[in-house]
Design a protein around this nucleic acid. Structure first.
Lengths: 164, 164
DNA sequence: AAGCGTAATGTTATAATATAACATCTTTTC
DNA sequence: GAAAAGATGTTATATTATAACATTACGCTT
């Protein structure tokens, strides 16, 4: 049995990233519409910049780009936008890298499983209920009740796997 | 079945923390002896300070204390000691808090499962092979080979669980 | 459309976390 | 005891993130 969803894949050979970004932006627009919240110009642009690659993006890299486009950009500009996007589940923070990645399926802000390739730097995201459940059970065995789960795994993606 | 080891417990009612630190220091001494590496005065003191509570400790808090004891203490003093201790598995870094906790059973630097209580701030550490295995399997299903696993769970420990 | 309240952004400053680079001192080894 | 390796001292700076307050834009009510 495996009912895991892959929320974000490692890019394949013929990956057209522009389409990937495009999808993400469409989804974000729709999500914000539904929720009655505002995807302002700054927030939209920060989201685009986070989606610019499959690698996690640093806040100050976003800021550098933003500065070249908008005189008033400053750290709070970026961190506020990121906070909004994190709250809405449109991006996630990779804690072990202090960097941010886009999320293709907004909503779940309380659990995420990230696979980080040490070679190419790309990140995949899973949503595996079986794993979430096991973690919750293990915790509950010692009387711990979970609010949020974070799983960050480092290693090699299929393309970068060391020749064996 | 549950063969999980609890590497670090939430302190119980009658918890004598001085004994707890003492054990940890003894283990650290022995471990370094065995491995032929040097637990210098600075490293020993930093380890003690990290063990000072069951809550994760910030590098600059360690530094503040160290400064009051040793004129030459500076950020590199602490970060170098922490790096050594991390490499040897004597402490772990909680990535989601940028803070450090002692580890009672040195050795495994490639997997850790941490339970972080949002109320009291204390952290427990598990070593659950079943969970490690499941994560490895999930990853391998998409061709990902794991080098390191990080699980950080936030919620409420038994003592702090909200009255239900 | 004017006015009001809220939300978002602008702006300046600073806090918190971490590392680089090179000098000096200590320990181990031969 | 000299050389090599390891640890610490020292100064400077990089990186990541937030505080605090001013101003502007938006969305709603009348």
């Amino acid at each position: 049995m495996n009912n895991a969803k892959i929320l974000r894949e490692f890019p394949k050979g013929k990956h057209k990233h522009s389409a990937c970004i495009n999808d993400a932006m469409k989804t974000a627009e729709a999500t914000c519409q539904e929720r009655g919240i505002r995807l302002t110009a700054i927030r939209r642009r920060v989201l685009e910049l986070v989606w610019a690659s499959h690698e996690p993006v640093k806040a100050y890299d976003v800021l550098d780009t933003l500065r070249s486009e908008r005189d008033s950009a400053a750290p709070p500009t970026v961190y506020r936008a990121l906070e909004f996007l994190l709250d809405e589940g449109l991006v996630h923070k990779i804690e072990s890298l202090n960097a941010y990645i886009g999320c293709g399926e907004p909503g779940h802000t309380d659990a995420g499983q990230f696979l980080i390739c040490s070679d190419c730097g790309d990140v995949a995201e899973l949503d595996d209920p079986e794993l979430v459940k096991m973690i919750a059970e293990k915790a509950s065995q010692i009387g711990f009740s979970i609010e949020q789960q974070l799983v960050e795994v480092t290693g090699f993606c299929a393309q970068c796997a060391p020749a064996s």
